[in-house]
């Protein structure tokens, strides 16, 4: 019965022309950027599962998801920020700076909770500075956070000679880095569950709350949003702070994975994050983007990197292949928009 309904809808959508139901489903899938990413991921998964015996194993999928968790968590915040028509280029430098500070705090206090709170607080402060300079001085956030990218990296270099080692030996800290929340029936590493929790929270925030609607409104048309009484600056500030705090959370996971705080961590991290958000369908022009798109894009880029190593390709391809995939995905998206006559 329900299958019948689907078929009917599909046929109506195609506008009376006779077509098989598969084309209708494909067309609907094709109607959004997420569909294209999903197709790319499925194709890539099938290819890798076929070529590498270890790809589709619990261990590899666990590693893959752990690897992408840091980019994904920051990208979730960045999605909100980019929807609100702002951007943050300083998240990579924060991986180093906040990571070092967090490890120093952990060493000094031997308290996991304090370390985490300090990391998040420093993140919030950096976010407030970004927001203050952008909104208070009226400078574009691209320039403000490019300057902060440089300043925060400088701060990271100042805060330690090279790296802060784990001297506190808090067992729970190691568990976050290398342990799993459950081992049966499937092993779920801590970073993965943290990523999932962050995703669900912000998915609900963006979909179901006034704040979420405000973010889209502010980015879509700031003047109209301001006229209709939306506190534009407050909404944008919140997005800046959320992005930085999630970047701090990523930094915390990173130091747990490395078992040290490195002042040279996170080079190029901002490009991975922003690249994933934009590939996921958001636009720097604001007002547009979804968390599902961001997550799918992160998975796609992470799987490419994972696959190249698994297949033992020449490491030189690690740079080229993601680039080619980005171009292809953007091309398919442009094609999709032309077919569906959607406005850019």
């Amino acid at each position: 019965m329900s299958a019948e309904t689907v078929r009917t809808t599909a046929e109506i959508e195609i506008g009376g022309r006779r077509a098989n139901p598969l084309a209708g489903a494909a067309r609907r899938l094709f109607a959004a950027q997420e569909g294209i990413l999903l197709l790319c991921i499925v194709a890539l998964f099938l290819y890798l599962a076929n070529r590498s015996p270890v790809f589709w194993t619990e261990r590899n999928i666990g590693t893959l998801l752990t690897q992408i968790s840091m980019v994904a968590i920051t990208a979730i915040g960045m999605t909100l920020l980019i929807i609100a028509r702002e951007v943050d280029l300083s998240v990579g430098s924060m991986q180093a700076f906040i990571g070092v500070l967090a490890m120093q705090t952990l060493n000094a206090t031997e308290n996991l909770f304090v370390g985490l709170v300090v990391a998040l607080l420093v993140g919030a402060i950096v976010g407030l500075i970004n927001a203050g300079l952008t909104l208070g001085l009226g400078i574009s956030s691209f320039v403000v956070t490019l300057a902060m990218f440089s300043i925060v990296r400088g701060a990271a270099y100042t805060s330690t000679d090279a790296a802060v080692q784990n001297e506190h030996k808090i067992p729970a800290f190691r568990t976050i880095g290398i342990g799993a929340i459950i081992d049966e029936p499937v092993r779920i590493p801590w970073p993965v569950i943290i990523m999932a929790a962050v995703f669900i929270i912000f998915f609900l925030v963006l979909r179901g709350t006034t704040f979420g609607r405000y973010i889209y409104a502010v980015g879509g048309n700031p003047k109209a949003a301001a006229l209709s009484g939306i506190p534009v600056n407050l909404v944008k500030t919140a997005c800046f702070v959320i992005t930085s705090m999630l970047a701090a959370l990523s930094a915390f996971i990173l130091i747990a994975r490395m078992n040290s705080g490195q002042n040279n961590a996170g080079f190029g991290f901002e490009l991975q994050v922003i690249g994933a958000v934009l590939l996921g369908g958001a636009s720097l022009a604001g007002g547009k983007g979804t968390l599902i798109g961001t997550l799918l894009a992160t998975i796609l880029l992470g799987t490419i990197s994972n696959g190249i190593t698994l297949l033992k390709w020449d490491t030189n391809w690690q740079t080229a292949v993601p680039g080619i995939v980005i171009v292809i995905a953007v091309f398919l998206d442009a094609l999709r928009r032309r077919v569906t006559r959607e406005e850019a």
Partner: peptide, 11 residues
């Protein structure tokens, strides 16, 4: 597009 080609060309 140019972000993608930046990685493609370099790679």
């Amino acid at each position: 597009t140019t972000l993608g080609s930046m990685f493609t060309i370099r790679g």
